[in-house]
Design a protein around this nucleic acid. Structure first.
Length: 417
DNA sequence: TCTGGGGTCCTAGGACCC
DNA sequence: TCTGGGGTCCTAGGACCC
């Protein structure tokens, strides 16, 4: 019966947007693989190897968070708060530390995503553990007869159940008439939550929340807002929009809208990536430019291979260096046309880094951007990209990229969005 | 304990063109 | 001789997100 209820029951057919956010995803994956970890504090470290003290926390289970361990925290600090479990006999106030196993998490994520695509026509995958669904076609805001519940809530429950059954991990789900509110809703009752914010109730839901709850508000914006006497989303919603605009530009307008619960963005599948990058930190800050160059060469090769494996051409090559305490510099150079050329990436990166010969470096990175993608086979690209067996002195002139390349690019652009 | 690695979007100034 | 206004592209930096 419920399926036949008219959708226009309440209001003018607002969308049903569902935000799915996996709970401490990496830790959950590890627990699925090794159920003995269930209930224990689990910390997943990136750049971490078993027994090590370097690296940073990628994910901490809720049990580990109870000890103060948080994402992005250095492993050394996490170990101070929550010592590593030495033997299985001594589980008291100790945690299990594991290195990131991206391949495995990716495989679990694929199972999760397949459930989502099964459940809704339109899915936007945001990251490995997060996605939006436009579920307007599969459910509605109609009330369940005789109850203070909406059909959409049942749908959300269904999403969670299916994910748990198929992929063996838990998610928190937020449902609202738009993306921004759905995202905030999923965050509201983590872990294992379901939060439904029907149309007409968004403002009341948002008003008491701290400004940081709004997607796009980080520490800097929050503290500027705080100086303006704005602490909650409700404060933003009742603030003078022109003042916000003055302070924050276009973002001010957006912030104002979001705080009101206004967000017209459609749920669309993600397009092509805009850039690829690789970066790597030195265990200790170094002023040895040779080492920096070596590292950069490796990163350049890695990232160029990744671009190639994704069928991407790039027109801009950039580097990034981080000097203590945390000073970030970037340099970039654009080419006359899109290329796929490992040697050129390495040469350009090293050239751009030469400006920093005397720098003390704690981190270096290489980035490829202004990407274009081949529609189909890689073979057609190799024909013109590597045709001159490049390797010599700066072959990167416009003569070097004849009209053939440009035509190629023009036809590629269509596939960009 | 001074922060790992991968991304996105926005802004601002300069060059250049009409 | 000094002057508009609009547009695009490029680089660099900053804030933010997971």
């Amino acid at each position: 019966m419920s399926g036949r209820l008219p959708v226009a029951d309440d209001s003018d057919d607002p969308r049903v947007v569902v935000h799915v956010d996996m709970d401490c995803f990496y830790a959950s994956c590890e627990r699925r693989r090794d159920p003995a970890l269930v209930g224990d504090p689990v910390v997943i470290g990136m750049g971490y190897e078993a027994g090590d003290t370097i690296g940073a926390v990628a994910t901490a289970s809720y049990e580990a968070r109870a000890y103060g361990v948080e994402s992005a925290m250095p492993i050394s600090q996490a170990l101070d708060l929550l010592p590593r479990r030495a033997t299985a006999d001594d589980p008291t106030d100790t945690g299990v530390y594991l290195p990131v196993d991206m391949e495995f998490y990716q495989s679990v994520a694929t199972e999760v995503k397949s459930v989502l695509h099964d459940l809704a026509e339109t899915v936007r995958e945001v990251s490995i553990d997060e996605a939006y669904l436009d579920a307007s076609d599969c459910t509605s805001w109609a009330r369940v007869e005789g109850e203070d519940r909406r059909l959409a809530e049942g749908f959300a429950r269904h999403v969670k159940t299916r994910i748990a059954r198929k992929a063996g991990v838990r998610a928190s789900v937020g449902v609202a008439p738009n993306m921004s509110a759905a995202k905030i809703a999923s965050d509201y009752d983590k872990p294992d939550g379901i939060v439904v914010v029907p149309p007409g109730e968004i403002s009341d839901f948002l008003a008491p929340l701290p400004v940081e709850a709004v997607h796009g508000v980080g520490p800097v914006t929050a503290s500027t807002l705080s100086e303006m006497g704005i602490e909650t989303a409700g404060d933003v919603a009742t603030a003078d929009p022109s003042t916000l605009r003055e302070r924050f530009g276009e973002r001010g307008r957006e912030l104002y809208d979001r705080a009101q619960g206004v967000d017209d963005r459609e749920v669309t599948p993600r397009g092509r990536p805009k850039s690829f990058s690789r970066e790597s930190a030195f265990a200790e800050t170094t002023d040895d430019h040779d080492r920096v160059q070596e590292r950069a060469s490796r990163l350049a090769a890695d990232v160029a291979k990744r671009a190639r494996s994704k069928g991407a051409l790039y027109r801009t090559i950039g580097v990034k260096i981080v000097e203590p305490p945390f000073e970030v510099s970037t340099r970039a150079r654009s080419l006359p046309g899109p290329v796929d050329d490992l040697d050129l990436v390495r040469e350009t990166a090293l050239d751009l880094l030469s400006e920093f010969v005397d720098a003390r470096v704690r981190k270096v990175g290489v980035r490829l951007s202004k990407l274009s993608f081949a529609a189909g086979e890689q073979a057609s690209l190799d024909g013109w990209d590597n045709r001159d067996g490049r390797g010599g002195e700066r072959p990167n002139t416009s003569e070097d990229r004849p009209s053939r390349t440009r035509r190629g690019q023009a036809s590629l652009e269509e596939f960009d969005g």
